[in-house]
């Protein structure tokens, strides 16, 4: 049995799947993509502590395209936060329960819902500091 991704929920109900770098390292490329898309299909925001390789990104786009279906699934939105001394890094570090900032944090959600996440950034922060 594969362990689940860590799940958290923001106060207004957006579920976040946190997938650690360690967890990702155990998975084959296709398993990573499956895990991401399963989360997104369920309406969750998936946060990867470690980014995907270019090859995996390319496959993620292809599989996403194959799964788009009118009125059901419009695809995904991705954002990447590179390692930088931004004020975010401590938040993100805490989010992943790590000491240092992650190399490249990737946030993937259902199309047109990453905005929700931005709006929720302080909520996520609050949620994380509650842990």
């Amino acid at each position: 049995m594969m362990p689940e991704a860590t799940e958290k929920e923001t106060p207004d109900g957006v579920q976040i799947d946190l997938i650690s770098g360690q967890r990702m390292d155990e998975l084959a490329s296709m398993e990573k993509i499956r895990m991401i898309l399963d989360g997104v299909h369920a309406g969750n925001i998936v946060i990867l502590e470690e980014g995907l390789t270019p090859d995996e990104e390319s496959k993620l786009i292809e599989v996403t395209m194959a799964e788009i279906s009118p009125d059901e699934f419009n695809g995904i939105e991705i954002e990447t936060y590179p390692r930088s001394a931004s004020k975010d890094s401590s938040l993100l570090g805490r989010l992943m329960g790590n000491d240092g900032p992650p190399a490249k944090l990737t946030v993937i959600g259902p199309a047109n819902q990453i905005e929700t996440l931005h709006k929720d950034e302080t909520l996520i922060s609050a949620l994380v500091s509650r842990n």
């Binding site: 786009i61 009118p70 695809g75 939105e77």
Partner: peptide, 26 residues
């Protein structure tokens, strides 16, 4: 792109055509 929404085309064409366009686009 990483997303395609047929509703983006419905101003310009019928729903059937928009759905077909988005399927072909993916």
């Amino acid at each position: 792109t990483t997303k395609v929404d047929y509703e983006e085309f419905t101003d310009e064409m019928s729903k059937d055509d928009a759905v077909r366009r988005s399927r072909e686009a993916t």
